[in-house]
Amino acid sequence: MERFDDAHGRRQAIIDRMLAHALRSASNERRQSHDGLPEDMRAVIDVLLAKAQAQRQRRLTFDDLEEALPPRDVSAEDLEAIFWILSEHGIAIEDSDPGRD
């Protein structure tokens, strides 16, 4: 019976280390997502976060996004990063309200 307990303890220690490593890696990736963007994309995120905070809303429109984007072509990866980072802050980009103009 003691051999079973020793083996179980070793397996559990390995699982705990793997889980800790996975969680540590995931949090590092999230922090680096903003830093890895070009400067103009970081500025877009900052503008959108400030707008959401000023309006005290958790939803912005595609018009808000369009206004914040730089004049250059924006890659799909940049847009995905913007949506991801905003979602980490609890902010969604949605269609414009018909009554909001």
Rank of each mutant, 00 (worst) to 15 (best):
L48A: 01
P70V: 00
A26T: 11
A22F: 05
D6I: 15
I15P: 00
M1Q: 12
E29F: 09
Q53T: 06
K51L: 09
R30E: 15
R31P: 01
E2G: 10
I85M: 10
D78R: 13
L49T: 03
L79C: 06
D73Y: 14
R3Q: 11
I91R: 08
D64K: 04
D73A: 14
P98V: 09
R10K: 14
A76Q: 13
M41F: 02
R10I: 07
I15F: 02
E66N: 13
F4W: 04
Q57D: 01
R42I: 05
A22D: 12
H21Y: 10
D95M: 09
I85L: 12
D46G: 03
L79M: 14
E77K: 09
H21R: 12
M18K: 09
L79Q: 08
L48Y: 00
A81N: 13
H21S: 09
D35I: 04
L49V: 09
L69I: 01
R100P: 02
D6E: 15
R42M: 02
E29H: 11
R17H: 07
P38S: 04
M18D: 06
Q12S: 05
V74C: 07
L60I: 04
L23G: 05
A68F: 03
P71H: 03
S96A: 13
A76P: 06
Q53L: 13
A76W: 11
E67G: 05
I82S: 03
S33L: 09
V74R: 01
I14W: 04
S33D: 03
R72Y: 06
N28C: 03
L37W: 07
M41I: 15
V47N: 06
I93Y: 07
E77Q: 13
R56L: 03
M1L: 13
A7Q: 15
R56C: 01
D78A: 14
D97G: 10
R11W: 09
D6S: 13
R17T: 10
E29C: 05
F4I: 11
D35H: 07
I14S: 09
E2I: 11
L65W: 04
A13Q: 15
R72F: 06
A54C: 00
I82A: 04
I82Y: 03
S25I: 02
R31G: 10
G99R: 15
D73V: 14
E66G: 08
S87V: 07
A92R: 14
S96Q: 13
M41Y: 01
S96Y: 04
I45R: 00
D73H: 14
K51C: 01
A54G: 02
A81Q: 07
V74P: 02
P38M: 02
M1Y: 11
A54S: 06
L65D: 00
K51H: 01
P38N: 02
D97F: 15
L49K: 08
E88H: 11
A7T: 12
